[in-house]
Structure formats: structure tokens, C-alpha cells
Design a protein around this nucleic acid. Structure first.
Length: 591
RNA sequence: GGUCCCGUAGCUCAGCAGGAUAGAGCAGCGGUUUCCUAAACCGAAGGUCACAGGUUCGACUCCUGUCGGGACCGCCA
């Protein structure tokens, strides 16, 4: 039940009526105005800028925006839910709602369950969210974790908003890096067979995590691989190592309650089971359409790479689709560039029915956004849409001091270690308590504090406190029915305190916040909003210290208690709903 | 040299698809409270929204440029 959306529709209909009367132009864009909560509560419960937005269009039929505003206000004032509507400031229409509307909001929050916050008309449109996609060459680090949690929460949010979401992971199992992985694993294999391998040579992965892979290789193949040349053992060892790494990564993800629907192999693009080469096919397709050519690129300005050689190469005309420079598709060794594979990969998404795609990348890949979007445009005939969400770095801290991380010194902190140390809830919440494109400081000590400074605790505690209030009410009124259905019958018109009304208004805002977060692809908004709800709840709870008449449970007034419990229950539902979208648990108690 | 992101209170950050007097939390300042419903509470102060133009009835928000910080910059992933 989205009050704001209801009024948006309501006012749209009024405008359509005015168009029908010939007082507004027929081509009026009805999406331009908004209905929102006014910043200053004294302005009322809802405000709309409709009259100002259509100031120009209102000139002829109304002589100006103010007249349009006052006519709209008169119509609004006659609406069933409206207590008062008046024109204010430069032409806003401020609306004050009848108190029973708020009672209805609370009842809706109690009885509608999930659909309370779900947008009215779910589109069920397919959307593909690709996230994590960490190279299968080692354990995930904290930066991967941010993208993982972000992508997962975004997928939750979109699914909730009615999209048909596919969660996808792109396995980079085709580049030179996985060959290095294979060589590193082969060394560990020899080690497992008793060979003294000494220090790991430069250029190979030194991590201990490859030891089990080496041992497993020894177990599976015995000494048989030792006699083979690298080109002979490479395919076997490589796939074996990749599978091992992916299993490890999936475990790391599982520790964060993250799972994907599709794991898409880069290698499968060129080496499909039927021998197909999708990369070659997409290049051929683009060639026939004349957006591939052979040419030379200007050398990069500034510092020239040492091995720069000016040569002719196969280029994709990405400048035709908004990129700054055309991009090479074939490497000097004849292989496809990563970008070429990525074009085929996104083509595959489109072919699988996803015109809506979201990629979650690390900020260090920011330079690839334009070319990828250009490619999607080219490959989909302009039908596909790709949104790329870049996640900035995570700075790991402990008690305000940066945690020194160095792969070489062995002080590198893996994602798994962080999850094991502070728990899933803390990791997930903190990763989402910042805009994705802002760098994030993650303090390992702070997230375990049980204080108001720790937002994870603060929000979870608000939920637990809400549950606690219900338990305490049962202590005083043992026969009370505190089910949502029963509480929805409470005399909600008894909720008259300003603090209580403010809490209800927050509940009323929740559906709107969810919709906005889903639309903007910004799950952090959910985290901030439930933090705000928690804050308001704690604050009102604290008022009960000085003013016992405000306490939620009132021994002398059973009906009032019921009404307040209904409010508490609607609040805890908002908080737990938000937490579940973020993938954070809502504990019954925090003791 | 280019592209992208960021620049909001001392610090860490929000700011809702342009809206009314720019918000919160910490720190600092001044009080209250060792009470009870579970881990304090209240208040005041703190700002040239980096800067300069532009679009608009209206700009922290959109556009251009400048400055500052970060990331990236044929064929690596």
C-alpha cells in the first residue's frame, strides 16, 4: 500500500480531467510531477509540485500555476482521504490526511505481509544481475565481498519489486591467468608427490590454498602427469584447478548466504560442447554489419607503454555507440581480446531473453563501462540496456587504524576470515551501509560493538526491542492475542501522540523507499531507511522513561496497549522486511 | 594527455528520478541520569554543498569549465 503512488494516480486523473476540458494540452507528460513527504512536517503529510511543473502548460487554461494549484487543491480537499489541501510557497499543494488513513496504513502493514511494500503492478520482466565474477585463481578478498553483497541485495530488491531475476557469475576461465593457475597447481602436485619444490617462482601463485589442489591431483592421477609435457597436462590440470577454485569461491559465497543461478564459463564461448565459437560468430556478425574494420589506434597520450608497437588491428567501431575510442578484438597472438569475449557473453545474455542487464564491477574496471554499453547497444540493435554498478574499494580498519594488507608479507586478509571474525550480518549490513560508488571503511572492532555507534547492532536491536515489547505485554495481559490479524483490529485512532504519528508516517513511507531503491538500483537506501526507522523507534521508546504514559505497554489500558502494539508490530515488520532484503537476520533478542 | 568516480558541518556520511529554512551519527560544548521497558537522555552550536559560469519559476541535484583526491588508460583479467 503505497500512499504516495495512490495520490500520484489520483492527481494524474484530475489532470486528465482538465485535459479533457481542454484546459491543459493533450500531450502533457504525466510522469513529471511527484508526490512526496514534505521535508518540514508542519507542511502536512503529502506534498506535490504538480502545479509548478506544469506552469507553462497552465498559462493558457489557468493564467498560471497558482490558479492550477488552487483548483487542484479544491478537488483534492474533496477527496475521501484528505482532511485539508492548500497551496503554499511557490505553488506546492500541501495535503493533510484524515487520521483514519494512518490507521489504514498500520492495518495494511499488519495484514498485507510482503505485498504491503511491493510495487502495485509487478512487471515480471526478466533481468540479469551479474556479480562477483572473481577470477578463479584464489580466495576472495574483501573487495570482492562488497560486490558480492551488493549484487545479492540488489537482486533481492529487484525480485521483491517484481522482476524475474537471474543471478549470474561469469567465470573467467579462459585467459592467461588460469594457465598460470594450472602451472602453480602443477607445482603443488609435484610437491604432494614428495618433490622439494623450494620457493614458488616469480609469476606463479604462491598461496597455500593450492596445496589441497596439488594433493587432490596426486590422489586422482598418481604420478601419471609427471611424464607429460605441459601442453599435455595443461587442459586437465587447468580444469581441475579451476573447479577446485570455484568450489572454494562458492563456499566463501555460501558463508555470506549468496548463491547464483547461473555460472557462465568464458571458455564455453569459444569451446562449446558442440564446438561452436560464439565469439567468432559475434565478430562475424558485426563485420557484416560494417561496424568492424581494420585500422590503427593512436598511441595513448602521456606515458607510452614500453612495448608499444604501431600496428594494424581488428577494431570494433564502439565510437558509433558512444565510446571514446574504437576497441581491438583480436590480440597480436591471434586470440580474442577479453573485450571480444565479453561482447559474445553479453550477446548470450540478450539471446537468453535479458534485455535488462546489470553488471556489478570493481571500480578499477570503470574504464570498461562505455565500451561494454556500446557493445550491448550494437549487439542488441539498441534494444538491450546495461547498467554497470561500480563498487569502490573497502578499507579494512581495526579500532580506527587501517589493517595493513600485503600479499607478499602474508598479512592479506581474505573475505572468509572477515566473515568468520565478525559474522555474516555485520559484513552484509556494513557493505550496504554506504553508497556503492563511495569508498567504504570497514572497522572490524566497531561492527561488534553493542552500541548506537554500530548501525548493525542498532537496527537489529530495534527489531529485538519490538519483539521484547510484545513479550512484555503478554506478561501483563497473558490472554492477549498479539497476532497481526488481531492487532489489526485494535482501536488505532487511539494513537495520537506526535511521536506515534511520526512512526506511522515512516511505515507509510516504506513502500515508496523500496520502489525508489529498486528503480535506482541502490540497495543502500534500504539500509539507510531502516536505520532511520530504528532510530525513530528507539527515540520514542526512550521518551517512555520520562513520560510513562507514552510507554507501549500500559497496564491500565488494554485497548491502548493493543493499538500501540499494532504500531510496534508494523514497525518491526518494516525493519525485518528491510533486513531480509539486505540479507541480514532479524534476531528475536540480543541478550 | 584522456575517460570514469568522488569533493556536503572538525570526522564519517545521507540527501529521496530539480522543490520550500541542506540532514544524521560521532567528536567538541552545556545540562540531565546510575533511573528503568534491554546497552543512557535532552539541548545549543556547527555549512560560501570545492570554485566559476549556464539551463530553470526554482540547482547539493542537470550541463560546461577550473581546482583537488582516487581508479583506469592497445593486445593482461
Amino acid at each position: 500500500m503505497n500512499l504516495f503512488a495512490q495520490f500520484q494516480t489520483h492527481i494524474s486523473q484530475m489532470l486528465i480531467g482538465l485535459i479533457g476540458q481542454g484546459r491543459l494540452p493533450t500531450d502533457l507528460d504525466l510522469t513529471r510531477f511527484v508526490v512526496e513527504p514534505p521535508r518540514d512536517p508542519s507542511h502536512g503529510d503529502l506534498a506535490t509540485n504538480a502545479a509548478m511543473v506544469y506552469a507553462k502548460e497552465a498559462k493558457e487554461g489557468f493564467g498560471g500555476p497558482r490558479q492550477l494549484a488552487s483548483e487542484l487543491a479544491i478537488m483534492l480537499a474533496q477527496s475521501a482521504d484528505v482532511a485539508e489541501a492548500e497551496v503554499a510557497g511557490p505553488g506546492f499543494i500541501n495535503i493533510r490526511l484524515k487520521t483514519e488513513v494512518f490507521a489504514r496504513v498500520v492495518r495494511a502493514a499488519l495484514t498485507e505481509k510482503e505485498s504491503f511494500a511491493r510495487p502495485v503492478a509487478p512487471s515480471a520482466e526478466p533481468i540479469n544481475v551479474e556479480y562477483v565474477s572473481a577470477n578463479p585463481t584464489g580466495p576472495m578478498h574483501v573487495g570482492h565481498g562488497r560486490g558480492a553483497v551488493f549484487g545479492d541485495a540488489l537482486a533481492n530488491l529487484l525480485a521483491f519489486a517484481g522482476y524475474s531475476v537471474t543471478r549470474e557469475y561469469y567465470i573467467n576461465d579462459a585467459g592467461a591467468q588460469v594457465d598460470v593457475l594450472a602451472r602453480s597447481a602443477f607445482l603443488r602436485y609435484r610437491e604432494a608427490l614428495g618433490e622439494a619444490i623450494g620457493d614458488i617462482p616469480e609469476g606463479l601463485y604462491p598461496g597455500d590454498y593450492l596445496k589441497p589442489i596439488g594433493e587432490a591431483l596426486a590422489k586422482t592421477h598418481g604420478r601419471s602427469l609427471l611424464d607429460l609435457s605441459e601442453s599435455q597436462w595443461m587442459p586437465k590440470v587447468r580444469q581441475f584447478a579451476i573447479d577446485g577454485m570455484m568450489a572454494m569461491i562458492r563456499e566463501d559465497l555460501a558463508a555470506l548466504n549468496i548463491s547464483h543461478d547461473v555460472f557462465f564459463s568464458e571458455r564455453s564461448l569459444t569451446q562449446g560442447p558442440d564446438g561452436s565459437d560464439l565469439v567468432g560468430a559475434v565478430i562475424e556478425d558485426l563485420r557484416q554489419r560494417g561496424i568492424i574494420y581494420k585500422g590503427r589506434l593512436p598511441p595513448p597520450k602521456g606515458q607510452l607503454p614500453d612495448d608499444w608497437e604501431d600496428r594494424e588491428q581488428v577494431l570494433f567501431k564502439s565510437t558509433d555507440f558512444g565510446d571514446d575510442i574504437d576497441r581491438p578484438l583480436i590480440k597480436s597472438d591471434g586470440g580474442y581480446t577479453y573485450f571480444a569475449s565479453d561482447i559474445a557473453y553479453h550477446k548470450s545474455k540478450i539471446d537468453r531473453g535479458f534485455l535488462n542487464m546489470i553488471d556489478v564491477w570493481g571500480a578499477d574496471h570503470g574504464g570498461y563501462v562505455k565500451r561494454m554499453q556500446a557493445a550491448v547497444k550494437a549487439v542488441s540493435g539498441g534494444q538491450g540496456h546495461l547498467d554497470v554498478k561500480l563498487c569502490q574499494m573497502v578499507k579494512l580498519m581495526r579500532d580506527g587504524e587501517p589493517v595493513i594488507m600485503s600479499k607478499r608479507a602474508g598479512t592479506f586478509v581474505t573475505l572468509r576470515e572477515v566473515v568468520d571474525e565478525v559474522g555474516v550480518d555485520a559484513v552484509r549490513f556494513m557493505m550496504l551501509f554506504r553508497k556503492n560508488d563511495a569508498t567504504l571503511e570497514f572497522d572490524l572492532a566497531k561492527v561488534l560493538e553493542q552500541s548506537k555507534d554500530n548501525p548493525v547492532f542498532y537496527v537489529q536491536y530495534a527489531y529485538a526491542r519490538g519483539r521484547s515489547v510484545l513479550r512484555q505485554a503478554l506478561g501483563i495481559f497473558p490472554d492477549l492475542d498479539v497476532s497481526a490479524q488481531a492487532l489489526a483490529q485494535a482501536p488505532l485512532d487511539r494513537l495520537t501522540d506526535e511521536g506515534e504519528l511520526n512512526l506511522i508516517k515512516l511505515v507509510a513511507q516504506y513502500p515508496r523507499q523500496i520502489e525508489a531503491a529498486a528503480l535506482a538500483h541502490e540497495p543502500h537506501r534500504v539500509a539507510f531507511f531502516i536505520h532511520e526507522v530504528a532510530s525513530a523507534f528507539h527515540s520514542h521508546w526512550n521518551k517512555g522513561k520520562d513520560m510513562p504514559q507514552l510507554r507501549f505497554v500500559n497496564e491500565d489500558d488494554r485497548l491502548l496497549t493493543c493499538a500501540r502494539l499494532a504500531l510496534v508490530e508494523s514497525l518491526t515488520r518494516v525493519i525485518s522486511s528491510g533486513l531480509s532484503l539486505l540479507g541480514v537476520s532479524a534476531p528475536q533478542e540480543m541478550r
